[in-house]
Amino acid sequence: MKLLSQHITKRIDRDQFHSVSEMKKFKSQDYVRNTMAVVCICMLITAFYGLTSCQKVISIDLNSASPQLVVEANVSDKPEPYFVKLSNTVNFSEITEVPAVTGATVEISDSSGNSETLSETGDGIYRSSTLKGTPGHKYTLTVKTGGQTYESVSRMPFPVGILNLKVKREADNGPGFGGSGDQSVRYVVNYEISDPVEYKNYYRFAVYYKNGIMMSRRVFDDQFHNGKIIADDFELHDTVNFNPGDTVMIELQSIDRGAYNFFRTLREGGGGLSFLSASPSNPISNISNNGLGYFNVCSVTNRMLIIPEK
């Protein structure tokens, strides 16, 4: 039973789409919702009868689904190569070897007539060399593989400036709910951005650590803040331990609606605990022909920050 509650707490911790304050609430609510019933009753039973074995691994015959294409494609306004990664879905038994999709034709074209066929670099990764992203242009991704064509169209939003950004160190045994106490520090990113009034804006924060590993991310929109200053926070957390003095790069991506819906509905590593959600489902993809994954065309603003000592 303890295992279960840890499992759930871990799952919630990994949910990276909530600000710290929301996170606390989320934690508390789900904690209530799901663990308390189980925990308290198992406490009871353990206490009285010691007869319980709450959990066991069972075998379920799940109808295996036929493989579907998974696309991870990124284009930004930075002058650098853009990458598209192609893979397939697998049955649970094959999860350790997810197959890369090789030999596909991957093309990205823009609304001003530029077009490039990306070159394959191996492992299902395709790389651009001449393409340069420009805000306001419309981009079309075309993937041809296995006799099927997959497409996605996205307009690059204009970049949005960051007014204020800082990393704060906090003691983690503060007034949170169900704090385990085993993690003594955490880092919280406070941000302030000025939302332009003209457009519907969708944002994503991406955080890169040493070696360019992407860790935390958070998506939000201006639905209730159009034209205002949006000030909120999110927690930097991952399995990687930060050290004071380390440099992290924080990237504010101005993304379009399709990518936003994908990232909003993506619960990394999550979906498994289906009882946590009333509606377990795939993240909403913006790839046609039942393709999974995303085509993220974004303009970015970067800041380098140093993890503080105190």
Binding site: N63, S64, Q68, P280, L292
Partner: peptide, 25 residues
């Protein structure tokens, strides 16, 4: 009636479960 994942895929470095029909299990 429940919705079980039918398979999985990888986004970034994370496993994402693949769902097909709502309440299909």
């Amino acid at each position: 009636a429940v919705t079980f994942p039918k398979g999985a895929y990888i986004i970034g470095n994370n496993v994402v479960f693949l769902y097909t029909d709502r309440n299909g299990d």
